[in-house]
């Protein structure tokens, strides 16, 4: 194991970080949309959100990625492997984040929603300005947790042709016949990134404004 090999792994880990961060943020936006659908009380929207969440939580991410990778070109949409990876990861994390947010939305104090209503906010305004910020604050630790899960799951995007940390490790292991030190190093890099995310998450949690009283 030389420094040069380790440097290649570090470079590839930048792609891992980029894919993970982008998917988490896209997934968060989708998850808020799914939550809005689920709480809209409109039959078809509620059912769409339910089935979406059940499907993406019920099928292995590997199979989801293979599905998107094979299905979209077959119906005439050709995408780069980066786009495929981002779509796959962000749809999957959206389903998990929507499930996390459900608890957050349930935790929004009733009185605040009623006050918003009394103050003349429409249901949509109340959702955007009152309920969503509080639900996000309440579920912040779950978001950090999900970020760590997605970082680990991003190792799967190699199956749609992305070269990130795990794929780079596979390539180097195959070309150097040193799978042991190379996969161990890749593991250590994941561990280090996760560690940083966990610590940053705890710091951010402490720095965020306090929770509303129940």
């Amino acid at each position: 194991m030389t420094w040069q090999l380790f440097e290649l792994l570090l470079q590839a880990s930048l792609m891992t970080i980029f894919v993970s961060v982008t998917s988490i943020l896209l997934g968060l936006a989708f998850a808020i949309g799914l939550s809005a659908m689920r709480m809209s009380g409109l039959g078809p929207l509620v059912w769409f959100a339910r089935i979406f969440i059940s499907f993406f939580r019920g099928v292995p991410l590997l199979v989801q990625l293979l599905l998107i990778f094979n299905l979209l070109p077959a119906i005439g949409i050709s995408l780069s492997s980066l786009t495929t990876a981002l779509i796959g990861l962000s749809l999957c994390t959206a389903a998990y984040q929507a499930e996390n947010l459900r608890g957050g939305f349930e935790g929004v104090p009733r009185g605040l929603i009623e006050s918003a209503e009394m103050a003349g906010l429409s249901p949509v305004q109340s959702f955007i300005w009152i309920r969503t910020p509080i639900a996000l604050r309440l579920t912040f630790p779950a978001l950090v947790n999900e970020a760590i899960l997605i970082l680990k799951s991003s190792s799967l995007v190699s199956v749609v042709g992305m070269i990130e940390l795990t794929k780079m490790a596979q390539n180097l292991a195959a070309s150097t016949y040193m799978p042991l030190p190379i996969f161990a190093s890749a593991g250590l890099i994941y561990l280090a990134i996760n560690w940083i995310v966990a610590i940053a998450g705890r710091r951010a949690e402490a720095a965020l404004p306090g929770l509303p009283a129940k």
């Binding site: 190792s155 490790a169 593991g187 994941y190």
Partner: peptide, 20 residues
């Protein structure tokens, strides 16, 4: 360590690195 690393990397390490 196991909780902080991807399962995929763990099985690659075990299956491809194990024989060494």
């Amino acid at each position: 360590v196991i909780r902080g690393t991807p399962f995929l990397v763990q099985i690659f390490l075990l299956y491809f690195g194990g024989p060494y």
